[in-house]
C-alpha cells in the first residue's frame, strides 16, 4: 500500500505562502480544502524548503515558524536549517 505523507495548515495569510511553496516543490501533491484548513497529501514524502518560502515572503524565514500555522501531519519528521521533510522511507 502506498504510504501517504500529509501536512495540514491553517488557511491564513501567514500560511498561504508556505502552502504555495509546498505546491511548487512537490510534484503530484494533492490538495484538500476544508473550511479553515488545507490538507496537502503526497505519496511517500513532502518537503518544505526555506528558500522557496523566503522567495515568496521576501524575508528570512526559519522553518520552525511552521509551528505557528501547523494543524497536523503524517510521516516521519526530519528538520534542519534549510528543509522540513515528512517521509515514510528509511534511508
Amino acid at each position: 500500500m502506498v504510504q501517504i505523507a500529509s501536512i495540514t495548515f491553517q488557511n491564513t495569510d501567514e500560511a498561504r505562502p508556505i502552502i504555495e511553496a509546498v505546491k511548487a516543490d512537490n510534484p503530484g501533491l494533492r490538495v484538500m480544502d476544508m473550511p479553515g484548513a488545507v490538507k496537502l497529501d503526497r505519496d511517500d514524502s513532502i518537503v518544505i524548503r526555506r528558500e522557496s518560502v523566503e522567495e515568496r515572503i521576501g524575508r528570512d524565514w526559519d522553518p520552525q515558524e511552521l509551528h505557528l500555522v501547523l494543524v497536523s501531519m503524517a510521516g516521519n519528521v526530519d528538520e534542519d536549517d534549510d528543509t522540513f521533510t515528512l517521509s515514510w522511507s528509511h534511508a
Partner: peptide, 23 residues
Amino acid sequence: SGAAYNGDMATVTFGFSAQSDES
C-alpha cells in the same frame, strides 16, 4: 473545520491554536 464552517470564530481559534502544538 466544522467550527469554521459554522461561524464559531472562538472555537476555531482555540482549536487551531491547540492543534498547532499537536504536531
